[in-house]
């Protein structure tokens, strides 16, 4: 049903009540792929965690900026970027891998790949990949 690399991009306000909208959108996309029910739930949970942690990290002067959720569905995997748009990076240095926040640990368990990166323009993004696995559940 999916053409290779269909892209859906969503901009949501930084408010907890819109996290559900992102979860629903992603659920709609993932459930049209070959994911099982539990896998779709895992993806939703990971996206919810990513959006929620962006909201938590938002400085008061940045509340008006949207969160961008970008979903790319390839034939065998879904790639999701949750982008925290910021004009400048946070002052605090990036966290050590050893004490990654629980939300990130959750994402890492739920998804096949999780990559957190700080972009040149100051924004931060987490990229998550979940592969369609037919045999191993």
């Amino acid at each position: 049903m999916n053409h290779p690399h269909d892209v859906v991009e969503l901009r949501i306000p930084r408010k907890p009540e819109y996290v559900g909208v992102a979860r629903l959108a992603v659920s709609g996309i993932a459930s049209r792929m070959d994911f099982s029910y539990d896998e779709v739930e895992d993806i939703k949970l990971a996206v919810g965690e990513a959006c929620t942690s962006v909201i938590h990290e938002t400085a008061p002067e940045h509340v008006a900026l949207p969160i961008v959720v970008r979903c790319e569905s390839a034939p065998d995997e879904i790639r999701i970027d949750v982008v925290n748009i910021r004009p400048a990076p946070r002052k605090t240095p990036p966290r050590e891998a050893a004490d990654a926040p629980i939300s990130q640990l959750l994402m890492e368990v739920l998804m096949d790949e999780v990559e957190v990166r700080e972009n040149e323009d100051g924004s931060a993004a987490v990229r998550m990949v979940k592969r369609v696995s037919r045999d191993e559940a």
């Binding site: 099982s36 539990d38 895992d42 050893a98 004490d99 629980i102 890492e108 368990v109 559940a137």
Partner: peptide, 24 residues
Amino acid sequence: KFSTYAVPTIIGEIRRYFRDKGWN
């Protein structure tokens, strides 16, 4: 940190529970 070690273990157990139910 212990929590870094424990979180995947705890979630792993919860997910195994769903998997063992043949939920999929």
